[in-house]
């Protein structure tokens, strides 16, 4: 992964987030949520900065980041696609939908298109099982999907 250099402004932002949670190691997950909300992802340099502020080893931060699927060390695309792989969607054909997206965008799960437009992920149950199979593009839920609809849906995004 490419090294990035955090500028002072970014470091201050991290310090500000940590201070909001009283620099308490017990609040690490909340700190990470908020930091990822700000930066979009959690690269190594950001994790080091958080570790410094909370006075804990960077290994501990890394351990938590890699444990939870919500945290990512990869930048996302401008639009993030999440295909529901819950059981209800699985039995109603989510695999076919996922295959179609992979084919259309030529990326794998966890990947980002070269132009940075889309990133692709799977998630477990959106809770809209009545609409299965379901996918999310950013916040918008698309339900009762068929593989042939994928091209048209993706074309709506700039």
């Amino acid at each position: 992964m490419d090294k990035i250099e955090l500028n002072k402004c970014q470091k201050d932002k991290i310090a500000e987030i940590c201070a909001e949670f009283h620099n308490s190691p017990g609040e690490l997950i909340n700190v990470l949520h908020k930091t990822q909300g700000h930066f979009g992802y959690l690269p190594e340099e950001v994790q080091r900065e958080i570790a410094r502020n909370l006075h804990i080893p960077v290994a501990k931060v890394y351990g938590v980041v890699t444990f939870y699927s919500f945290f990512t060390m990869q930048p996302k695309g401008r639009h993030s696609i999440s295909v529901c792989m819950g059981t209800a969607c699985y039995v109603r054909g989510a695999e076919g939908v996922l295959e179609e997206i992979k084919k259309e965008l030529k990326i794998d799960v966890g990947g980002v298109t070269p132009d940075g437009k889309f990133s692709l992920e799977c998630l477990r149950c959106v809770g809209a099982c009545g609409l299965a199979p379901v996918m999310l593009v950013d916040e918008k839920v698309y339900g009762r999907l068929e593989p042939k609809q994928i091209k048209g849906i993706l074309a709506q995004y700039e």
């Binding site: 997950i29 909340n30 990470l32 949520h33 444990f67 939870y68 699927s69 919500f70 945290f71 998630l123 477990r124």
Partner: peptide, 8 residues
């Protein structure tokens, strides 16, 4: 409130 982060 405490937030989970996606771990079954």
């Amino acid at each position: 409130i405490r937030y989970g982060a996606g771990a079954f």
